[in-house]
Simulated scan of single mutants.
Amino acid sequence: MSDTRTNAGVDNFSVTRKMFTWDVPGERVITLLTAGNLATTQALISLLDERSKIVEERNPTILELPTMFQVARLIGSTLKEVIQDSWAEGPEASSKFKASVILGGQIKGGKPTLFLIYPEGNFIEITEDSPFFQIGEAKYGKPILVRAYDPEMSFEDTIKLLLVSFDSTIKANLSVGLPLDLQVYVGDSFEVDNKPRIEADDAYYQAVSSGWGDALRNALTQLPSYKE
């Protein structure tokens, strides 16, 4: 799940997609979620998309590499290339163009997996102890995921948890906003059919948002009062 808000100051907000998917039906699905400098992330997506349509023996694309690990290496090096090309002068300038990426997907012969790719081009993969990643504004929504996530959760309950996490962030930070893009991938399907966009007037989102607020207030009243 990703939000769609970008900003260049408190009076300059816009809606921009931050989730992008490439697939080869029956063989692979690759999805990127982006955060950070918009010019950098747009250049990254454009380069990956452009190169995926050009056959070059010396440079396999994300649609040709045999493993998700190698796809992560390629995207990491491409992100690093984009950031370096944007530098004006010296390391101070590079910080203005930083971006991070979550890579998810599956290639036939391997398992579905996720990678968190840093601006420097290096990356880490999910583990049983760290089963999810967040990028962008994470501090408001992460505590909810840490407390409530269960690996045995259904898709439906996981989506509910994600909405609660995003709603808490949206309430607390102007840089995150609706609509939200959602993508559900079923392992070994090698296709994505479910990619809804959740708008502000979505009935389920409104029910979750108001229900979560009511539940927090009720939980607070049931906690023991402080005593000297």
Rank of each mutant, 00 (worst) to 15 (best):
L180P: 06
L74G: 00
Q70C: 02
K160N: 08
P119T: 03
I117R: 05
F115W: 10
G121P: 14
W87N: 15
L103P: 05
L180K: 10
E120P: 01
R147W: 05
F132S: 09
T158S: 09
E137F: 08
L114H: 03
P179T: 02
A99S: 11
V82G: 04
P131W: 11
D85N: 14
I83F: 11
Q70E: 13
N122L: 11
L116Y: 14
Q84D: 14
V146G: 00
G104V: 07
S168Y: 13
I75K: 09
F69M: 10
A99L: 01
E125V: 08
G110Q: 14
R147P: 00
G90W: 15
F123V: 02
K111T: 08
S77A: 09
G109Q: 08
A138V: 09
G104I: 03
K111Q: 08
K80D: 06
I75W: 13
T158I: 01
T127S: 12
I126P: 00
W87M: 15
E156C: 00
S175K: 02
E137P: 05
Q84G: 09
E81F: 15
P119C: 03
D167I: 04
S154K: 06
L74Y: 09
Q70V: 00
P151Q: 01
L116F: 13
D150P: 02
L79F: 08
D85W: 04
E128Y: 03
I135H: 04
V176Q: 03
I102A: 01
D181P: 04
K108F: 12
P131L: 07
S130A: 10
G121C: 12
D167G: 05
S94P: 01
F132W: 15
F132Y: 15
E156N: 04
N122F: 14
F155Q: 03
Y149V: 00
K142D: 11
F133H: 02
K98N: 12
G90A: 06
F133Q: 00
L178F: 12
F123Y: 12
G104A: 08
L161D: 07
R73E: 15
L145K: 06
K96Q: 12
T169L: 09
D181L: 08
T127V: 02
E120K: 08
F155I: 09
P119H: 06
K108V: 10
V82F: 10
V101S: 01
F166S: 02
I117V: 06
G90R: 10
L163F: 15
L74N: 03
L103M: 07
A93N: 10
A88N: 13
F115G: 02
A148F: 14
A138T: 13
K111H: 06
F132C: 03
A138G: 07
V82A: 07
M153N: 03
T78Y: 12
S100I: 00
L161R: 07
F115I: 01
D181V: 08
I75P: 11
Y149A: 02
P112S: 06
G105K: 12
L162C: 13
K160F: 10
A88P: 04
P151L: 01
V176G: 07
E156M: 02
V82I: 15
L145G: 00
S130F: 13
L174T: 06
Q106K: 05
F155N: 01
F69S: 07
G136A: 00
S86R: 15
V101I: 13
L74W: 05
V146Q: 13
F69T: 10
G76L: 07
E89N: 10
L163I: 07
